[in-house]
Design a protein around this nucleic acid. Structure first.
Lengths: 348, 348
DNA sequence: TTTAGCACTCGGGAAGATAGAGTGCTAAAC
DNA sequence: GTTTAGCACTCTATCTTCCCGAGTGCTAAA
């Protein structure tokens, strides 16, 4: 059975009211707050049917209804209208993102913080996915004898560095040359194709320094781990503790379950990755309540979208909030931030 | 009036019991759990006096007693005995700290995570204080035309870098030379004495590159901000959400107040700094409940100590837990971690 | 100074009563 | 067939009352 027009309106009104007040919505309250041209009894009938179809639930017999996961799903899929961001809000976000960004990391931090402030929920920003990036530069900089800073630059504007130890009689020149050799051999190569072996051959093909193999290998190993480490997704997450003020997390156990999961950056990043693949064609992905396979997030909804670097699919930004979130507002906010990122990262 | 021996024992026993159970301690429970050779009536008298002296409080008339801030203070100052860490625990910590650390940052992260795991409370590790550090190196590395990575190395082993923009017709050689010139002029100088002017004179005295002043100044300005930015204390904090499982934070409002304050790294760092100065001569500093002037921490206790780099006073590590914390255990844990840090950072 | 004894206090949990919001159903009206 | 008024019913949340028991403070005796 399909939803007739009035049922759609009823469902929409219930979601709206519940989002606003976090209290089960009854037929009378619905009449009071909305301009339905029918009586409460009629709404009661509709609500009963909506419940039977699985869009609504009752916390207990004599309470109002609350949306089920399916109800929220219907709401975001076909009922809500995503309105444009207000001009002021757009301006606010723009301001927050107008940091002079010279590394993508600082821009993402700003984006995450803007999203958290603006939505009032938990925000998320992830560095570009490694699968889409390749090595552009590798610099080795001697800080003091025996200590070298390896700077790895990836195509998407990601810069990572790592301090490593090497035998302390190697000179700055030797080190720099090895770095250059590796860079020459590997730049342009996707990270997935870089292995200890490719690093070694690159170095040996390109370098002129005379060094015993064992010594050279030691340095190359460090270079290799530095490159591999640049692989790691960085996750910027903000606004976690704001969830404590929501009624759905007034139970500390539940809040703790949420925080426990969120403290594992890797888990969250992995989930985002997986889900983004599933919803590849969509502009944004939304997961509601039990649809989220992460532990402790079954009272939450999760919205992410993908930003581009140099016009190509890159990393993700997102928001985690209660199921009872202001979907249309959050979506327009997240969209706006994404557009700003795309704009700022246009030239590769 | 001074505390006679039995009163001391009573206070100590009450603190111990309350720490263990988070329940007000009555005279009878005290008798049951400890070997006092007197009757409960006698203890009642003692407890009444201890209350009058301000060491104990009653949540309400007919409950047991709980320690007041003053009571805890007396406890940590003269009653508890700090016992040595068990061998296993020492081993565990040692293992967690046996990361190959090449930057002080990663060692501090490991220290903070070990402390959080081991104590079960919130841990804190801060990079060395800037007042005690001076510039040792400044490298400028061209990543691509117009983009330069400025690497700042400080005496205490702190390495920071920052990407900056410069006019894009400058060459790697020019940039590197300017960096070298500034390094030559400023290395060994305390950060506090470095200003835009000293940077400029250093560069002009030492460099040979011919560049128009306005251009040079632009680069120098970026170098200067990079140095100044290295100034910032980094704070590593872990284990926050563990507090949610403590009964004293079952009220989400309270937890939120705590988290709100803790999310401002600067606030906490500033407080630690201030308090460390006050307790300069002591091995560790302890602040209990209301003694802590940070908002939201009045149900907490705060213990910090100072680690050394190259034998000189450097940064702080610490633990924030409930007032009802296992002081002696935490102190021995924190001390152990500090000793490990000192050991690892012995050679400058 | 210590102790036994006892009356008193107070919080917290159990039990019961009540109000009110909301429901589902029936039968009449449109 | 759909809508509506009316009504009995259900269930929670709240308030009151009551009582238990842990704990106290005081007194008087050891």
């Amino acid at each position: 059975m399909a939803l007739d027009n009035r049922k759609k309106e009823v469902l929409q009104a219930i979601v709206d009211d519940y989002v606003a007040n976090c209290e089960p919505v009854g037929s009378k309250a619905l009449i009071d707050r909305h301009d339905f041209m029918v009586s409460s009894a009629t709404l009661r009938n509709d609500m009963a049917e909506l419940e039977q179809m699985g869009y609504l639930e009752k916390p207990h017999t004599s309470a109002g209804r609350i949306p089920s996961d399916k109800g929220y799903r219907e709401y975001v899929d076909s009922l809500m209208k995503v309105d444009k961001l207000s001009d002021e809000e757009g301006k606010e976000i723009k301001e927050k993102l107008s940091v002079s960004f010279d590394e993508i990391a600082s821009l993402l931090k700003a984006a995450s913080s803007a999203l958290a402030d603006q939505t009032g929920y938990i925000s998320l920003a992830m560095t570009p996915k490694l699968t889409s990036s390749y090595l552009t530069q590798l610099k080795m900089l001697m800080i003091e004898p025996g200590k070298v800073l390896v700077v790895v630059v990836l195509s998407a504007g990601v810069v990572k560095n790592r301090m490593v130890r090497i035998p302390d009689f190697l000179t700055q020149e030797q080190i720099a040359q090895i770095g250059n050799a590796v860079e020459r051999g590997l730049s342009g190569l996707p990270l997935s194709e870089i292995s200890l072996i490719t690093v070694a051959t690159a170095a040996k093909d390109n370098q002129k320094v005379e060094l015993p193999d064992s010594l050279l290998n030691q340095v190359l190993y460090e270079a290799y781990t530095a490159i591999k480490q640049a692989d790691n997704l960085d996750v910027y997450m903000q606004g976690k503790h704001r969830m404590l003020s929501l009624p759905e997390f007034s139970d500390t156990k539940r809040a703790q379950g949420l925080f426990d999961t969120l403290s594992h950056d890797g888990l969250v990043a992995g989930y985002v990755d997986e889900v983004t693949k599933q919803d590849e064609k969509k502009e944004y992905m939304i997961r509601i309540g039990q649809e989220i396979t992460l532990e402790g997030l079954d009272e939450c909804s999760f919205i992410t979208t993908t930003y581009n670097v140099g016009g190509k699919v890159a990393g993700n930004i997102g928001v985690i909030g209660p199921k009872r979130m202001e979907y249309s507002k959050v979506i327009s906010q997240i969209n706006f931030v994404r557009m700003m990122l795309d704009e700022k990262l246009k030239q590769p």
